[in-house]
């Protein structure tokens, strides 16, 4: 799937930058340093925006395009930030046949973002995940650590309303 690129302004701190520099220093002489550095960079920032990838490119002395190529190849990397409330809708087989597509459409309709995006206020992010092992509850979604099962689209507004600010 094509990776979505965040348009939300970057708000990294100098502490985060310092941490990233340490990570780069640790890996700079490793062959294939891009992968571990990107993994740790994502742990630090939660995602891999342009500014972070430029820092990695400069730090490892690699072309930015090479960094971006790796970041867009692996599904583990995200180019959009996670919101305060991260919604994951399972699109595994069981959930899918039980109507998970309609669930995700309903969420999109309410909060105005598609999968792999984050609302501009940073409150919600939405992503489609594969099986989370709760097929008996299909269709399933999680919001941070809360699990919601046997969902109907009509329940969605009420559930989202619980997450204020």
């Amino acid at each position: 799937m094509l990776k979505k690129i965040s348009t939300i302004p970057f708000s990294g701190t100098s502490e985060q930058e310092q941490m990233l520099k340490e990570v780069i220093k640790k890996h700079i002489d490793d062959p294939g340093a891009i992968m571990p550095v990107l993994q740790e960079a994502q742990e630090i920032y939660g995602y891999l925006p342009y500014e972070v990838q430029v820092m990695v490119a400069e730090g490892l002395n690699k072309p930015l395009e090479e960094i971006y190529g790796v970041a867009t190849f692996y599904s583990q990397f995200s180019l959009t930030p996670k919101g305060k409330y991260d919604i994951s809708v399972c699109l595994g087989t069981a959930c899918y046949v039980k109507g998970a597509g309609q669930i995700i459409d309903k969420i999109t309709q309410i909060i105005g973002i598609s999968a792999d995006e984050c609302t501009s206020d940073g409150k919600f992010s939405l992503n489609a995940c594969r099986c989370i092992g709760a097929c008996g509850l299909a269709p399933v979604m999680t919001i941070n650590d809360d699990v919601y099962g046997r969902l109907e689209p009509s329940q969605i507004p009420e559930i989202l309303a619980k997450y204020k600010d």
Partner: peptide
């Protein structure tokens, strides 16, 4: 130069 590469999957 390395400004072009393989993107996505």
């Amino acid at each position: 130069v390395g400004v072009i590469g393989t993107n996505n999957r």
